[in-house]
């Protein structure tokens, strides 16, 4: 009886402690949560709300309507921009992850002493001006740019090459360069976490380097690859700076048309619907991609 009561008391004390621990945690988190609710959740909710309204001259008609979504998905120009944005971002994601993987592998498995120096070298571009990194490509690919003037002064060409700048390929190259650091870090972190004794065990059991990579290293690094792909694919679909600076009229992306709705034309509900539709499309594609990659990985193993 006494033992039971004591046990119950301890349980209640433990429960109370856990609850107060949770309460203290919540109290510490609440300022951040309040700010993020006010400046992230509320604006997103309002964006969703706007997308169901209609612009009538200078006034907003707040009657619920799907008209903006009809325009967003129905008009040929907008549909083409959706497709192009997704094509460009997919290409960028694929190229960036493929190029980054060997680099991350090198730092995780081959570098012994100077790991810190390599990591710093790979993180510096991550934090330095995105705008300037994109601008650099305009300087490189331009009509009188680095490549053209370089090739001309070497006597290799006599006319500047016009196909370098202002096209979707220029956008892909520039984005692949600008987003490279975002791919390396997640892949590196996952490679670094791999238990080396697994590789030794596989080697002892007679697996060659390729088999070890396919059956151990790659599957275990997959969460990093998926994270890198998502971290690049999602934001690049909405990139504005790169298509504006190096895309020309053939390289226009969905963000350019969203920006126009909030700037000169001033049809905010349409801009909101375009933004919501592109986020939904990107979200669905991302989920499908993650599922497909996981399924494929399960089959490899």
């Amino acid at each position: 009886m006494a033992v039971a009561a004591k046990g119950e008391m301890t349980a209640r004390l433990a429960h109370f402690y856990r609850r107060s621990e949770g309460a203290r945690g919540l109290a510490l988190l609440s300022p951040t949560m309040l700010i993020m609710l006010a400046a992230l959740a509320a604006p997103m909710a309002l964006l969703a709300l706007y997308s169901f309204w209609t612009q009538e001259g200078y006034a907003l008609n707040t009657q619920f309507s799907l008209a903006q979504y009809g325009t967003s998905l129905g008009r040929q120009t907008y549909r083409a921009l959706f497709y192009r944005s997704i094509e460009i971002s997919s290409a960028v994601t694929l190229i960036t992850v493929l190029l980054a993987y060997p680099m991350a592998y090198f730092v995780a498995f081959r570098v012994e002493r100077s790991k810190f120096v390599w990591l710093i070298l790979l993180t510096i571009p991550f934090w330095t001006s995105y705008l300037l990194r994109v601008f650099a490509w305009k300087v490189i690919l331009g009509y009188n740019g680095v490549i053209n003037s370089g090739l001309m002064s070497l006597g290799l060409i006599h006319q500047p090459l016009e196909f370098l700048l202002y096209n979707p390929i220029a956008v892909v190259v520039t984005l692949a360069h600008a987003w490279a650091p975002f791919a390396i870090l997640p892949i590196y972190v996952n490679l670094e976490k791999i238990d080396r004794s697994l590789l030794e065990a596989a080697a002892d059991l007679g697996d060659g380097p390729l088999r070890r990579f396919c059956r151990i290293t790659f599957p275990l690094s997959l969460p990093g690859v998926i994270a890198a792909a998502v971290m690049i694919f999602v934001p690049t679909t909405g990139d504005y700076v790169t298509p504006t600076l190096v895309g020309g009229s053939d390289g226009v992306m969905i963000a350019n048309i969203i920006e126009v709705q909030f700037d000169r034309v001033g049809n905010w509900p349409l801009g909101a619907a375009l933004a919501m539709a592109s986020m939904a499309a990107v979200g669905i594609l991302t989920l499908l991609f993650v599922q497909a990659t996981r399924a494929a990985a399960a089959r490899i193993r």
Binding site: A42, L47, Y50, G238, E259, M279
Partner: peptide, 15 residues
């Protein structure tokens, strides 16, 4: 980190 900057920008502008 997973929302395009342009969406963050316009949604705050609306608010």
């Amino acid at each position: 980190l997973f929302i395009p900057e342009i969406v963050l920008g316009i949604s705050l502008l609306i608010l």
